[in-house]
Design a protein around this nucleic acid. Structure first.
Length: 757
DNA sequence: AGTATCGTCGTTTTT
DNA sequence: CGACGATACT
């Protein structure tokens, strides 16, 4: 049992506690993954059959890491039978297995968010609704949160509270859209991301025998990042664990940063009331960071009201103070960071791998990138458009999907006329409409084209039939051959590969490479699957198997291997940095309305989430953290003045390298508003940001406006009042915006800021 | 049918 | 500002 010696006292207690509900509250850098892996190893050593262990993580990467770590302790053979993966991948596996119980085919396709958005768009159009009012992205979010709350379309439509909300939001048809959407997904044999959890709930709730089966199978359940689970997930856990109550959740409420997509921090805060006899272990010793960083992070997070008591500490050195960098613009911010990296590299003789630049939004990466590129510093951006979401990849995947599940409406639309085969949009619309009217899938319509009586010319019908014939030939092949063979056949038979090969523009080349990469991934899949052949009776190398979890993969998983081993600075959003650590961490763009995000400043709970996000950012650093902010920043093409983030003022001044700066900042931050920053560069200073920025003017501020007053509008930029009419509070202003022209604005709605000339 | 031009909208964050 | 979609034109 030598591995247990590697644990500290609490870690060991948590890892060796076998039965009953357990909650491990793990502060940042306190070795929670280690506890989880050792606990699994320990269970196995104590005679628990790995077959009875379920281990859920939040990302594929985390699950893969854990898998390798466990294999190293207990051996490959043992670790192989543990069910380990993300919620989505594990439950999609179960859903495929039990699909018939909920009326789904086991080869259902998974709609990614683009697919579901596109389906919503078609539905909105079919209902003749205005897509300015019924914005697909909004509708999508609303439906998603309904599903996360386990509310189906019928319940949604019956719920008067929800209905009133929708009426108030001028979207009374939302329930209807939800209903149609659900139905269309069902007809297409498709599930969206939320369905994977939602339908699992239904499956387990309505089939006592299946629930029993999995309760008995998963006698020991482990959940990582528990603070990020949503209601649908926690409910699944509750059901599965109900019989044996051997559930071990690990998490840190201070690092809950996914509430925006339904994660419910109450799951961890209230875990105790769900399992009164829970044993709680607190991992409070931080092994990652310096005292400075730990103290700063503690200080910041103590401003949150909702949290579990924890006292993170470390034996590590005090370390260097946090360096605060004040810049004039985002360009300068980039330069500062880049220069700092160059300096540290020499001084500490470390390479680029030691650095990470973290930011709140992806849009910030551009200016930072430029600065690095200029100095020839190699970097890598994590996140962004995932490989499997690239157009060319999705197009090919569309063909694959049609082989597995031809009822997939989104795949059908995607490839019907791609590559161009003379089946235009009008024709496509006719097919889709006919399908939706008859409650069939588009594929079923084209299969029996003559019976559909569509007003189509003979020429078009021929083309459609050729398309049908082509797809069928692919389907036949997919049933027999392995994934790689089918894949490369499709890529060349459709002419897609040739098209990109001929295209010598950089985009064309990159598309070609992406297709090649997809194919080589399939080749690898086919070869690996070949080795593990005995397991399954059916063809494990089949395209269908390959496609099963493609939708759930992100590129982070894929990239590691192919990247050359040149050291690189890592750049990513704070969200994607969770779980990672770097000696030097730069947190860029620490400004009000950016971090914390503008959308969060009006609610306490959202603000607390932003603060947790900052906590996560800080605690990524091992040796030293840098915090930078700019006083101006481009946003939507126009320049904005920024105030330093309130979070900066929440760090104890003694922990900051330039106390002078921070002291001034503190004074500024405690004042209501209107202090000046960097007045030596500001061509026009912000005298009074009225109201909290992002809201409309109050009556008192309206009265201050007169002809000639300079104002700023969120979207139109800077302008000058050239006319005023009407009485407060219904006063209307005519504003001449630079480069935009005159606009009439109703002051009680328009989000204006008053500027001094 | 395919291209060109114009308008719009948005920035949180991801499975 | 830049990406993307919708409309208009050829």
């Amino acid at each position: 049992m030598s591995y247990l010696d590697e644990l500290n006292d609490v870690q060991r207690k948590a890892a060796t506690h076998i039965n009953g509900p357990i909650m491990v509250l793990a502060g940042a850098g306190s070795g929670k993954t280690r506890v989880l892996t050792f606990r699994i190893a320990h269970l196995i050593e104590k005679g628990v059959d790995p077959f009875h262990i379920l281990s859920l993580t939040f990302t594929n990467k985390a699950s893969r890491e854990m898998k390798t770590r466990i294999s190293r302790i207990v051996g490959d053979g043992m670790s192989k039978s543990i069910w380990m993966g993300t919620f989505h991948s594990v439950f999609s596996k179960i859903l495929r297995f039990e699909a018939d119980r909920i009326g789904y085919p086991s080869n259902f396709t998974i709609y990614d968010s683009d697919d579901s958005k596109s389906l919503l768009k078609t539905i909105i159009k079919e209902l003749n609704l205005d897509d300015k009012v019924y914005k697909p992205s909004l509708i999508q979010r609303r439906i998603s949160s309904a599903k996360n709350g386990l509310i189906n379309a019928t319940e949604y439509q019956k719920d008067t509270i929800i209905y009133n909300e929708d009426v108030q939001a001028k979207k009374p048809m939302l329930g209807k859209i939800y209903g149609i959407y659900e139905n269309r997904c069902f007809k297409a044999g498709a599930m969206d991301f939320d369905d994977l959890l939602f339908k699992t709930n239904i499956l387990l709730k309505t089939n006592a025998d299946i629930l029993f089966k999995y309760q008995e199978k998963f006698k020991f359940i482990m959940v990582d990042e528990f603070q990020d689970t949503n209601f649908a997930q926690s409910n699944i856990l509750k059901m599965l664990a109900a019989r044996h109550e051997n559930i071990c959740v690990v998490g840190d409420d201070a690092q809950s940063i996914y509430a925006f997509r339904g994660a419910n921090i109450q799951n961890i805060l209230q875990f105790k009331s769900l399992y009164p006899d829970v044993t709680t272990y607190k991992l409070e010793q931080n092994y990652r960071s310096t005292k400075t960083i730990v103290e700063a992070a503690n200080h910041v997070i103590s401003n949150n009201k909702e949290q579990l008591q924890k006292d993170v500490w470390t034996h590590n050195d005090q370390g260097e103070q946090i360096k605060l960098i004040k810049c004039l613009s985002e360009t300068e911010e980039g330069s500062f960071i880049a220069n700092e990296i160059l300096e540290l590299k020499t001084r500490d003789s470390c390479n680029e791998d030691s650095f990470a630049i973290l930011y709140r939004t992806n849009a910030q990466s551009r200016a930072l990138e430029e600065a690095l590129r200029k100095r020839n510093i190699h970097y890598r951006i994590y996140g962004g458009v995932s490989f499997y979401q690239r157009k060319e990849v999705k197009d090919i995947l569309g063909y694959f999907k049609m082989c597995i599940n031809p009822n997939d409406e989104e795949a059908f639309k995607r490839i019907l006329n791609y590559p161009a085969r003379g089946i235009g949009k009008t024709t496509q619309d006719k097919i889709i409409v006919a399908a939706s009217e008859e409650g069939k899938s588009p594929w079923e319509i084209v299969l029996n084209l003559d019976q559909a009586h569509l007003p189509l010319t003979a020429a078009v019908k021929t083309k459609i039939n050729e398309f049908v014939y082509l797809i069928r030939s692919f389907q036949v092949m997919a049933a027999e051959k392995d994934a790689y063979e089918v894949g490369s056949h499709i890529a060349s038979a459709t002419g897609i590969l040739r098209e990109f090969y001929a295209d010598k523009t950089p985009e064309g080349v990159s598309r070609y490479e992406n297709i090649q990469e997809l194919l080589s991934g399939m080749k690898e899949f086919s070869e690996i699957a070949l080795e593990e052949d005995e397991e399954d009776a059916k063809n494990p190398r089949a395209l269908g198997v390959f496609m099963e979890d493609v939708a759930l993969l992100t590129d982070v998983d894929n990239k590691d291997a192919k990247d050359d081993d040149q050291p690189k600075v890592s750049m990513m959003t704070i969200h994607s940095a969770k779980g990672l650590e770097y000696p030097y961490v730069f947190i860029a763009g620490m400004e009000e309305n950016l971090f914390p995000s503008q959308l969060s400043v009006n609610s306490r709970s959202e603000l607390e989430e932003e603060r947790r996000l900052f906590y996560v950012a800080l605690t990524r650093a091992e040796k030293k953290a840098f915090i930078s902010f700019a006083s101006t920043r481009f946003k939507y093409g126009s320049m904005n003045y920024c105030e330093p983030s309130r979070f900066i003022g929440e760090i104890d001044p003694s922990l900051i390298e330039s106390p002078a700066i921070q002291k001034t900042l503190k004074r500024e931050l405690t004042k209501p508003a209107g202090f000046k920053l960097a007045d030596h560069i500001a061509p026009r200073k912000l005298v009074k940001p009225i109201g909290s920025s992002g809201s409309a003017l109050g009556a008192a501020d309206m009265a201050k406006l007169e002809i000639g007053t300079k104002v700023k509008h969120e979207r139109f930029g800077n302008g000058e009042i050239v006319g005023l009419e009407g009485e407060i509070p219904d006063r209307k202003a005519t504003v001449e915006f630079r480069g935009v022209g005159k606009k009439q604005l109703l002051l009680k709605f328009a989000k204006l800021q008053i500027l001094e000339s």
